[in-house]
Simulated scan of single mutants.
Amino acid sequence: MYRNIMVPIDDSHCSSRALDEAVRLARATGSNLEIIHVIDYGFLRVRAHGGELEEEHQHRVAAGNALLVKARHHAERAGIKFTERLLDDKSTLGDVANRLIHDIQDSKPDLVVIGTHGKSGLQRVVLGSVAETLVRHASVPVLVVRGDIPLAEEVAAGQSTTSA
């Protein structure tokens, strides 16, 4: 079935839900979980002051590492095998989706699990969608977890965590 499941994370509710689902799948299938955080350098397109850039870089790296530590604890509590990586590549200039596509080609996971806000129409056009780009261009299956729909285990337990 699955040997390696990749889950890109950021600091959003839908990403947290995707991590929950990826951990559940990894536990159920005995898979290795590959937890990824991509530093988003989209701010470089609009702001380019030397000292500020280094400070912003340090802030983003620290925040990314904190996310990975939190995800690591989640995976450890679940008792699954996992790796974690911080992708720090300024050349992407905010194109997180394309950076993930390249990483998928290199690491060759069997499945990618990613969260989405479930936006549509103008909101999606304005905000863009990393999840949609992965669905369209990744060379492996992509499981999209919406942040506003309860996961199967929550439904079974009678819980609901819907949010906008």
Rank of each mutant, 00 (worst) to 15 (best):
M1H: 10
R124T: 04
E132M: 08
F82S: 01
V69D: 13
V61D: 04
D10Y: 01
F82H: 08
L100C: 03
A48P: 06
D110R: 02
L127I: 11
P141Y: 08
G51F: 07
L87C: 09
V145I: 10
H102P: 05
V125H: 13
E21K: 03
S15D: 03
A28P: 00
R146A: 06
V113H: 01
E21G: 00
Q159Y: 06
T161R: 14
V125Y: 15
D40M: 04
R72A: 15
T161V: 09
A62R: 13
S15T: 02
D106E: 11
H137L: 11
K70S: 06
V140T: 08
D103M: 06
V113T: 06
H59F: 11
T133G: 07
G94V: 04
V69F: 06
R24G: 05
V38A: 05
F82C: 11
S163E: 10
H57I: 14
R136W: 11
S163L: 14
R99L: 07
V113N: 01
G30D: 07
L44A: 15
G79F: 12
G121L: 04
P141F: 07
D95V: 14
E76Y: 10
G118R: 02
T116L: 01
S160C: 15
R146V: 09
H37F: 03
G79E: 10
D106F: 12
Q123F: 05
T83W: 02
G30S: 00
D148A: 00
